[in-house]
Design a protein around this nucleic acid. Structure first.
Length: 504
RNA sequence: GCCCCUGUCGUCUAGCCUGGUCUAGGACAUCGCCCUUUCAAGGCGGCAACACGGGUUCAAAUCCCGUCGGGGGCGCCA
């Protein structure tokens, strides 16, 4: 009933309608979706994308979003990683309505469910050691046979079994895969069919009493009334196993949607190997969360025009059916562009907290930028934002504005500060600056061009040299704005200081 | 080896379901020009793709079959 009704609503298949009760309608409309990371590492970019897709879907359908931490692999999971994942999600702005629910606190429940399946004859005890199975698997494969699972413990004699139990031989619980085939309709891929004979008798409960992924995920998804499971393509082959489990528990399976996997440049599934860092590393590197979100969302999805979308806009436009099936390759150049677009479009006010953090890290921050020099500081932000692609660049490009402690770029010195008459000419320009009534960009430009004309030189001669002298770099915002912002006194002081320290 | 998924410019994608309007559109990157004071930004332009082979059809990127390529899975990991 549930599945059919969902199909009717979400697959646009009105032919399948049957009359639901009021309760059914309520349940049908309430989409329950979960994001279930495993805290065996930081939240990496692929997982963040999965979370985003789930989040967009559930917000679009005004459902409930559950965060579940799948930490049944006690050896590899850690609290620290859980906290890191939560921190990353918070930074991205992907909020949840329930949880985090830790599976490690529910072990007893899974254990009982596994035993229940054994009692029902849908699962069985397996006394094989993992090493034994591995050996048998290798032998089968080496002799050219296909290996699924030899189901040895299904056939052991009662005597043998009694003996194993007597000696307390460790036992796991395996699922007894019935004959037949599994069909399901993937919301992204369409119809998928797998023969049960190709599904191994997978383990539900390990010999140490801890559940495996398949068991815990299905038990939780049932209990938490998950209606849509949206995850990576790497789970496609797990889905039939899980559907089998739903059937064994007598529950209608939810809808499944498997989305493409992000690939590295070598076309392999993106992983730590590719040096692609955690979500939080992107934050460190000066990316804005909205840029990351746009970047991730627009892999396998095209919301329309090529631009930045707010989360609300993405939520409105989102649809699983519009998702592309092919695996996208991870390429930072678009992210950089997106980030640059965002920065340029931000107001100084919006930029302020980000840049403040960055400047603090670079030891360039002073409290006066938030107080008496706030207006000046905002002017600086507006000048720098046009040509910045990452927040980090504000510290680099902004340094000579904020501190006298900066370097002179050697190639720029070589190129623009080598003229024999430079000092003399610059002193003349500085005199012009001193005589100026109001020190504005307009007046500065006028004075500089006039000076150049008098000396029979191109304005560019003064412009490039002046930029090097006062900023130490050959790249900056428009020089007249720069000089105005830096101020008359500091400009003259820097020019003089340079010649004093570099005589001749 | 077996099973499943997938295949449009270098990259991200639109188009595919509902064949003709596709000499395949956009964006990023790249190249060139303009603007100019450097770098960006902006404007204009260039390069660049339907994996291949069969079919169906008056007509195929679009439908069917096959081949090849790519990815994922085949754990007492999740």
């Amino acid at each position: 009933m549930q599945g059919t009704a969902h199909e009717a609503i979400f697959m646009n298949n009105p032919g399948k309608w049957i009359l639901p009760t009021a309760y059914d309608i309520f349940m049908m409309k309430m989409v329950h979706v979960r994001f279930a990371p495993s805290p065996t590492g930081y939240l990496h970019i692929g997982a963040a994308r999965t979370c985003l897709i789930n989040w967009l879907f559930v917000r679009h359908h005004k459902g409930k979003f559950i965060l579940r931490i799948e930490d049944t692999d006690t050896a590899r999971s850690s609290d620290k990683m859980s906290r890191g994942i939560i921190q990353a999600l918070t930074w991205l702005g992907l909020d949840w309505d329930e949880g985090p629910i830790f599976q490690s606190k529910r072990i007893e429940i899974y254990r009982n469910k596994a035993e229940e399946l054994v009692r029902k004859g849908k699962a069985y005890y397996c006394y094989c050691l993992p090493e034994e199975i591995q050996k048998r698997k290798k032998e089968a494969l080496d002799s050219g046979k296909n290996w699924i699972q030899d189901r040895r413990c299904l056939r052991i004699s009662p005597e043998e079994k009694r003996c194993f139990e007597l000696h307390k031989k460790p036992r796991a619980i395996r699922f007894l895969v019935p004959e037949g085939e599994i069909n399901y309709n993937d919301l992204i891929h369409g119809h998928i069919c797998v023969q049960n004979e190709n599904i191994e008798h997978f383990v539900l409960l390990r010999s140490d009493g801890l559940p495996t992924y398949h068991l815990s995920v299905v038990v939780d998804d049932i209990e938490q009334k998950i209606t849509h499971i949206i995850r990576g393509d790497d789970h496609i082959s797990n889905t039939p196993k899980q559907i089998l489990l739903y059937q064994a528990f007598g529950v209608e399976p939810p809808e499944f949607a498997h989305q493409s996997l992000i690939l590295g440049k070598d076309k392999k599934k993106l992983s730590k190997r590719h040096g692609v860092s955690s979500v939080l590393q992107f934050k460190e590197d000066g990316y804005l969360s909205l840029a990351i979100l746009n970047f991730l969302a627009q892999m396998s999805w095209s919301p329309g025009e090529e631009r930045i979308y707010s989360l609300d806009e993405m939520v409105n436009r989102f649809s699983l059916e519009k998702r592309a099936k092919g695996n996208p390759v991870f390429d930072l150049s678009k992210l950089d562009w997106l980030n640059g677009q965002l920065i340029s479009a931000m107001t100084a006010d919006e930029l302020f907290p980000y840049v403040k953090t960055e400047l603090k890290n670079a030891n360039l921050w002073q409290d006066k930028y938030a107080k008496e020099q706030k207006e000046w500081f905002f002017r600086l932000l507006n000048l720098l934002k046009e040509r910045s692609r990452k927040i980090k660049e504000f510290a680099v490009r902004g340094r000579p504005f904020l501190s006298d402690d900066f370097e002179y770029g050697p190639s720029g010195v070589e190129k623009y500060l080598n003229d024999k008459r430079l000092e003399e000419l610059m002193q003349k320009l500085m005199r012009d600056f001193k005589e100026m009534q109001t020190f504005t960009a307009e007046n500065i430009e006028h004075a500089l061009r006039k000076r150049a004309e008098k000396e029979g030189l191109k304005a560019a001669f003064f412009i490039h040299a002046l930029r090097m002298l006062i900023l130490g770099m050959s790249v900056s915002p428009g020089i007249f704005d720069v000089v105005e912002l830096l101020g008359r006194e500091k400009t003259i002081r820097r020019v003089n200081a340079y010649f004093k320290n570099n005589p001749g």
